[in-house]
């Protein structure tokens, strides 16, 4: 099973899966060099873990990518409850004694619920010039402010510029809300649940996480494609998936 823990090593935990899963021997996790990934089992469930040195920080790009790739590749095959990046336990025994044992039924039920389901993420970003034009056309105040600043020195018109920018920012936020709602409604027939992610960029149009039956992934992608075509001039749309259900495995209400 798992190697014994030294004081200088800990056990990094990626996620919880059903116990009948097998981990490929070449699976590698976080750390430099990355350690093999192991499955620590307890009754019906198991945890994907790997050994990490405790004296080195985690979070290099390779660590982040390794964490997600392991979970996404797992999710493509079996249900998995993803654990947030950075979870390290001091000893292998703790994986069973503190994580899997006390929460066995809760995790097992969540895994059952997630069986045959994966997450897709639809991300869209506004094409800047197009969205700015829309705002100027729809908002006379913005158009007026723009006229006042064009060709003027940035210093002299600083206050006007800030006013204009604030109006634009609010207008984009309103568009984001409307477009997100429209997309969610359009994709609703293809998913079991949807979760709106907050924007991570001021020109984000939409970030929508969807819980989808694995078999229906292609249908969903087709629907996203149709939306993308109708939005092509104003929004660049991307779809990511299948992913582990990051947005649907939450701590307060599992699975």
């Amino acid at each position: 099973m798992t190697q014994p823990a030294g004081a200088d090593h800990g056990f990094y935990v990626y996620g919880v899966v059903p116990a009948d899963v097998e981990v490929s021997p070449d699976a590698r996790g976080v750390g430099d060099p990355p350690s093999p990934v192991d499955l620590v089992r307890h009754r019906e469930i198991g945890a994907l873990v790997s050994k990490v040195p405790l004296d080195r920080p985690l979070g290099r790009p390779d660590d982040l990518v390794a964490h997600e790739q392991l979970l996404d590749a797992t999710a493509a095959e079996v249900p998995v409850l993803p654990i947030r990046f950075g979870a390290v336990l001091s000893q292998a025994e703790a994986v069973v004694e503190e994580l899997l044992g006390p929460h066995h039924d809760e995790f097992a039920a969540a895994l059952k619920e997630l069986d045959g389901r994966v997450e897709y993420l639809v991300k869209g970003r506004y094409v800047e010039q197009v969205v700015l034009r829309e705002v100027l056309e729809e908002n006379p105040e913005a158009a007026r402010l723009r006229e006042q600043i064009v060709g003027q020195s940035a210093e002299a018109t600083r206050d006007l510029r800030i006013q204009l920018g604030e109006i634009i920012n609010q207008a984009i936020a309103a568009k984001r809300e409307a477009d997100t709602r429209a997309l969610a409604e359009r994709l609703q027939p293809y998913c079991l649940q949807a979760a709106v992610r907050p924007p991570t960029h001021e020109q984000d149009a939409v970030q929508l996480a969807l819980l989808v039956e694995t078999d229906r992934g292609p249908e969903l992608e087709e629907a996203v494609q149709e939306v993308a075509e109708s939005w092509a001039e104003r929004v660049t749309l991307r779809v990511l998936g299948p992913l582990a259900p990051y947005d649907f495995a939450t701590t307060s209400r599992q699975g």
Binding site: P82, A94, L99, H103, Q207
Partner: peptide, 25 residues
């Protein structure tokens, strides 16, 4: 990846206390 794994998924602290290691991230 950053958007996804740093603030999504199960929070380990909610399940494990004693053996949790505060590794530097």
């Amino acid at each position: 990846v950053i958007d996804t794994i740093l603030d999504k998924g199960l929070v380990i602290d909610a399940y494990v206390n004693v053996s949790l290691v505060g590794i530097q991230i």
